[in-house]
C-alpha cells in the first residue's frame, strides 16, 4: 500500500493553490485598508493645512461687469447647484449684487459670497461646532454634525449661507451636500488643496474681466497682497470687526 508518491503531486498543487489563495485574500483584505489609511492621513505633514497660509480674495468692482454672471454660473457648475426653480429656497453660494448710490446714483456690480471671516459669527453661534474655520482661513460646514438649526444663517451678516430645503441627487463627490443641512461657499477648497484657484476666479478671468484675485494674504509675494498694497480696499461691514478674507476695491 505505497500510494504516497502518486499523491505527492496533487498535494503540492493543493498547497500552492492555498498559498496563492491566501495571498490573494490577504491582498484583497488589506489593500482597501491601506488605501483608507492613506486617504485618512491625507496630506503629508509638510503639506498639511497650516496657519502660515491665509486664503483670501480681492474683488475689483471697477472691473466687474453689470449683468455678467460668469462667476455664479461657474460656481453652480463646479458644485452641482442645480436648484429647483424656487429662488427663495434654492441654494446660492455666490450671487451678483447690484448697487446704486442713493445720493449720486453711481452704480456698482459685485459678487457676494462667504467672506471667510477670521472671526466668523456663523462659527461662534453654531451649537455643535459644524461651522468651523480651517487653519488656512477657509470657513466650512462639517456636514456630518450640522443639525440644520439655521442659527448660522441668522448670524451671518452677508446672507452667504443656504439651507437645503429639499432632497438632492447627483451631488458632486467633492461637494457633499444634503437635505436639512446648511452650506456656503467653500472657496473651492477641493481645488485650492490641489493648488488651483476657485472656479469663480477662473471664470471671471476667462470672461476677460480679471475682477477677482485669489491668493495667500500672508504671502507678501503673492499677486493678491501686491495688488492689495497698491489698491485701496475695504471689508464689507468692516464695523463688525470680523476681519474678512474677501476684500473689495472700488466701493
Amino acid at each position: 500500500m505505497k500510494q504516497a508518491p502518486t499523491n505527492a503531486v496533487p498535494d503540492k498543487k493543493r498547497r500552492s493553490f492555498f498559498t496563492q489563495a491566501a495571498a490573494g485574500i490577504a491582498l484583497l483584505t488589506l489593500a482597501p485598508g491601506v488605501r483608507l489609511v492613506d486617504l485618512a492621513l491625507g496630506k503629508k505633514d509638510e503639506t498639511a493645512v497650516t496657519g502660515t497660509v491665509r486664503w483670501g480674495m480681492l474683488i475689483d468692482t471697477t472691473k466687474c461687469a453689470e449683468g455678467c454672471v460668469a462667476c455664479v454660473e461657474a460656481c453652480d457648475t463646479e458644485h452641482g447647484l442645480t436648484g429647483f426653480n424656487r429662488p427663495k429656497t434654492d441654494a446660492q453660494w455666490i450671487r451678483k449684487l447690484e448697487l446704486e448710490d442713493e445720493q449720486t446714483g453711481k452704480a456698482h456690480s459685485l459678487p457676494m459670497l462667504c467672506q471667510h471671516c477670521a472671526n466668523p459669527p456663523c462659527v461662534d453661534v453654531c451649537p455643535t461646532g459644524a461651522s468651523f474655520v480651517r487653519k488656512d482661513g477657509i470657513v466650512l460646514v462639517d456636514k456630518h454634525i450640522c443639525i440644520g438649526c439655521r442659527y448660522c444663517m441668522m448670524a451671518c451678516p452677508y446672507k452667504a449661507r443656504s439651507f437645503i430645503h429639499e432632497e438632492l441627487s447627483e451631488q458632486k463627490p467633492h461637494a457633499p451636500r444634503g437635505k436639512g443641512t446648511v452650506e456656503s461657499c467653500t472657496f473651492c477648497v477641493h481645488r485650492v488643496d490641489r493648488d488651483h484657484t476657485p472656479a469663480c476666479v477662473e471664470a471671471c478671468s476667462e470672461a476677460g474681466h480679471q475682477a477677482m484675485i485669489f491668493g495667500d494674504l500672508n504671502d507678501n509675494n503673492s499677486t493678491l497682497t501686491k495688488v492689495l498694497g497698491e489698491l485701496a480696499s475695504k471689508q464689507v461691514r468692516e464695523d463688525l470687526g470680523l476681519n474678512t478674507g474677501v476684500r473689495y476695491h472700488g466701493i
Partner: peptide, 21 residues
C-alpha cells in the same frame, strides 16, 4: 431641525462659545 435625527449629535457635540449650546 433640518436633521432631527441628529439629536444625539446636538446632545453630545458642543461648541461652548455658542449661546445655543
Amino acid at each position: 431641525l433640518g436633521r432631527p435625527d441628529r439629536l444625539i449629535v446636538a446632545m453630545t457635540t458642543y461648541n461652548f462659545k455658542s449661546i445655543f449650546a
